[in-house]
Design a protein around this nucleic acid. Sequence first.
DNA 1: AATGAATGAGAGTTCATTCAT
DNA 2: CATGAATGAACTCTCATTCAT
Lengths: 180, 180, 180, 180
Amino acid sequence: MDKRTELIEIATKLFSERGFENTPLSIVCETANVSKGLIAHHFKSKNGLLREIFQRTTDLIVEMNTIDSVSLSARERLLQLLESFFSQLQSDKLFFQFNLNMMVQPSTREVLADLIEERSSFILKATRNIFDEIDPENSLVKSHLFIAELDGIALSYLGVYKEFPLEQTKEQLIMKYSMI
Amino acid sequence: MDKRTELIEIATKLFSERGFENTPLSIVCETANVSKGLIAHHFKSKNGLLREIFQRTTDLIVEMNTIDSVSLSARERLLQLLESFFSQLQSDKLFFQFNLNMMVQPSTREVLADLIEERSSFILKATRNIFDEIDPENSLVKSHLFIAELDGIALSYLGVYKEFPLEQTKEQLIMKYSMI
Amino acid sequence: MDKRTELIEIATKLFSERGFENTPLSIVCETANVSKGLIAHHFKSKNGLLREIFQRTTDLIVEMNTIDSVSLSARERLLQLLESFFSQLQSDKLFFQFNLNMMVQPSTREVLADLIEERSSFILKATRNIFDEIDPENSLVKSHLFIAELDGIALSYLGVYKEFPLEQTKEQLIMKYSMI
Amino acid sequence: MDKRTELIEIATKLFSERGFENTPLSIVCETANVSKGLIAHHFKSKNGLLREIFQRTTDLIVEMNTIDSVSLSARERLLQLLESFFSQLQSDKLFFQFNLNMMVQPSTREVLADLIEERSSFILKATRNIFDEIDPENSLVKSHLFIAELDGIALSYLGVYKEFPLEQTKEQLIMKYSMI
DNA sequence: AATGAATGAGAGTTCATTCAT
DNA sequence: CATGAATGAACTCTCATTCAT
């Protein structure tokens, strides 16, 4: 793997664990065994690095959701989406941690404004695709509510309740959305 | 109003608007027309100030929910809670912004760990009181889901979707929880 | 004991243990359970407190050496002086620590310049009184050497060598000065 | 000369003249025409700079004493040591001033604890090498006494008595140790 | 592509002192 | 005699960024 990619991965991990503002580049460099100048060379600035990371994640999300939209029914896709959300939430906590962070922190939100807009409107569109088949009239609201529900669960699970009953919540949700 | 209280109010506003890490004490002091030393005098440190702010908010939450628990039915209390949540979310965005921030940011979460634990377990308990009357068997999961739903809505509304359909989401939710 | 004296004793202890520059008045106040204003009231400033402490110690030294100069022979007085030096060095380390400190630290030396001069010339005079009887011609040099020897022992014992052989050094010295 | 070395020399001078605690980095930087950040870059912290300075001095001492141990008799080496001590004491007051300071000040003593231990045990060993040849049975005590004597003279000369008779004291000492 | 010396602005914190009560 | 709110200057340290090599 080239230094550039390595740098991105290491920075992602550190920003997730410690927060963006609380992670000096010096630590990133130390961890990656790389000089400060190299980050400037590749990413121009700390914000540049952040934008690159965020963009890559969006690309990943887009890719995943594009492949997934095979010829399944809306309900099936919804359940599949739930399954993948919950399994990822467990396996890749840092990923969610990081993204929640970026959304909520005023300073990062400013830096990433356009990328956040791009990503979230994609997610909304993708979700709406599903709900359009189920309840076209209320698809907008229901999509928003669906997304909010998942975000809220991530928030509670990662940031608030150490003993959040993830498994049972998943079951509740699957049950609820099976009956639609 | 004494300087101490004024300081807390100004700091709350600034921390909410700009994020905690991104708000130097110098700005707080400038805004409050007060010397840096005074913050040390009253709160020991920037973290001390943060803790005081967070604690005060918890006190407010506890107070509100204690008074509210009059002799209404569970369903009525739930609807009342929803009403107050949505009206507050609109009128006091900064309040929610700030609290989401504190939960998600690793550095603040560490500083506030005990206070977050205290507050969130209170909220869970209060919510569970309601769901115990509605569905005792699943009250824990349903409470968690309810809280997550509201947090998620706040997150979407404040942090992600500029055009979040708040009014319609509120109606959806009220409808949903009326039928319980 | 009145607050004033108590304050002096506590400050002496703290300044000795931690060094003058490294002991904020806030700690003195905390330890003495007294407000900051009170120190200003009694001693005008931190330097004022220091001067008072140093002066009091000089008074003590003068008092002790005045009483001591009874009608003993020079050799006897010398041995007596050695005895009292070594026993004090062991029993009251902080006292010596503090005084060495004051002499060596440029900033305190400046503040105390006149008081140091006063004290050290008294000590020299008192020592010389003894050596005048023993070797009038070289009394100045021998007094200086005697004082330096004791100071150096204090320095080694307190500040440098954890395992300084105090007892044997004492014996050596007593032997040496008995033969004069 | 590179900035690093220049910084060390300037800091040594300033710390000696004004005391460590009483010398802000801002003055060091100003004198060296260098930014504050550079000190952090090279020495990590003010204490780091101090440790480097102290260590370098120890290295010098070790080097000097290693070269010196040519094939002279113990008495000759002792006299040579005395000569070099007194000439240095006169020519390089700041050097002694600084080192006395470090030993006596509680805060610096803590920072330098291991380095002080290292240096002083070397000095003791070197001195003992000499006294082992003269009086093997009492070499430990006599070495300690010898070191204490010199330290005490430095203390008196530099810190206490403006009119300390250095020349005559030197003669006395040389006479005394010639007769051993 | 990569280094690391150097900068400079500014952060949080410390602390002696002042002063109204 | 005693308090403690308030100041303001100064301190160390942090850190993103620049730039010559």
